[in-house]
Design a protein around this nucleic acid. Structure first.
Lengths: 179, 179
DNA sequence: GTTCTATATGAACATCCGTTCATATCCAAG
DNA sequence: CTTGGATATGAACGGATGTTCATATAGAAC
């Protein structure tokens, strides 16, 4: 799984062969089929594991409190969690079209569930009067796209710490939605 | 080129064969090599054409004026241009890793040039005192990720017009960077 | 020490890949 | 009417693909 993850992230699902994955583990291609029924399931399992891990981690991280605090936690959590798993994130966003229709629907449902967590925070803040968002669903998509974007440019060896990035993004998110 | 564009966007570069592209045009695979030296160049040309078109269109669209007005124009332009070319956008973001290193560098340079257009607006607004951004480069990446994100969820048949989407995103961008 | 279960091998399967090239076809220019 | 350049064909190339399976190996359980 780890080898497949790395290779899929680096070269893309379609461009990686079962023989390459096997070679990375030091085994022949046939042996992989003791652990996965086929290549498609391998991809699906990687994505499902990632999305379920994301949802579980957020369940453990989220808290009660006012909408602003909950939004702050979501923003910082999302950035940390995604920056720690660049390969999983990359695959889960890029390889959706290589999923079987039914597998796609399942991953999509998990993603939707995660998005709804943010959307609920925005709607609550709207009701509390602390947020001013014209369209919670659209703002949800905008905020998620923005914070997920860190994975495309952030480098551990770069000039900014994760905390510094969290601060910058939280400031932007807060100002974008505050009443 | 059009057939390759559509197929690459739908199934991914690595998953589409020259024979499929040829069949889409009603021709045999060998005939394609009268128009492109190889498959890699086909992908590269699609991306280069897209990025150059984007830069040209922005050159034609951008104006002088205060930073806020220039940022407004950039935001609205970016959304319109990208929503009108979903296939090109998809390919240009998803298939970067399938480019030869030297081809990648060239596309990356064009992308960087486009990003710099936004970064310059932010820096000018900062100097004018109308913006308050802690890190222009990071905010550039954040804004571009946010507005590019519309392409992942917007549907022409959906409930929102392009103008409505532009209004929502512009409000968010403006509030996120304003002093 | 034998049996059993789990796992690895390596060859084989049919099929597809990108690319080349000799040959054929077409159509405009002279 | 002939020539020549552009373009299409279809077979062929070596090699890679996902997957299967009979066979081999290894170590634990009895």
């Amino acid at each position: 799984m780890q080898a497949a993850l790395t290779l899929f992230a680096r070269h893309g699902f379609a461009a990686v062969s079962m023989r390459q994955i096997a070679a990375e583990v030091g085994v022949q291609a046939g042996a992989l089929y003791n652990y996965t029924p086929d290549k498609q399931t391998l991809l699906f399992d990687l994505m499902r594991t990632h999305m379920e891990g994301l949802l579980e981690a957020w369940e453990a991280e989220k808290s009660d409190g006012d909408a602003t605090e909950r939004l702050r936690r979501f923003t910082r959590f999302h950035i940390t969690y995604h920056l720690e798993r660049p390969d999983e994130v990359f695959i889960s966003y890029m390889e959706l079209r290589n999923l079987t229709p039914e597998n796609f629907r399942e991953i999509e449902a998990l993603r939707r569930k995660y998005e709804t967590e943010l959307e609920k925070i925005l709607r609550d803040g709207l009701a509390e009067g602390v947020f001013n968002v014209p369209d919670p669903r659209v703002v949800t998509m905008a905020v998620i796209a923005m914070v997920t974007g860190v994975t495309t440019w952030y480098r551990t060896a770069g000039r900014l710490s994760v905390e510094a990035v969290q601060d910058i993004y939280w400031q932007m998110v807060q100002r974008a939605v505050s009443a």
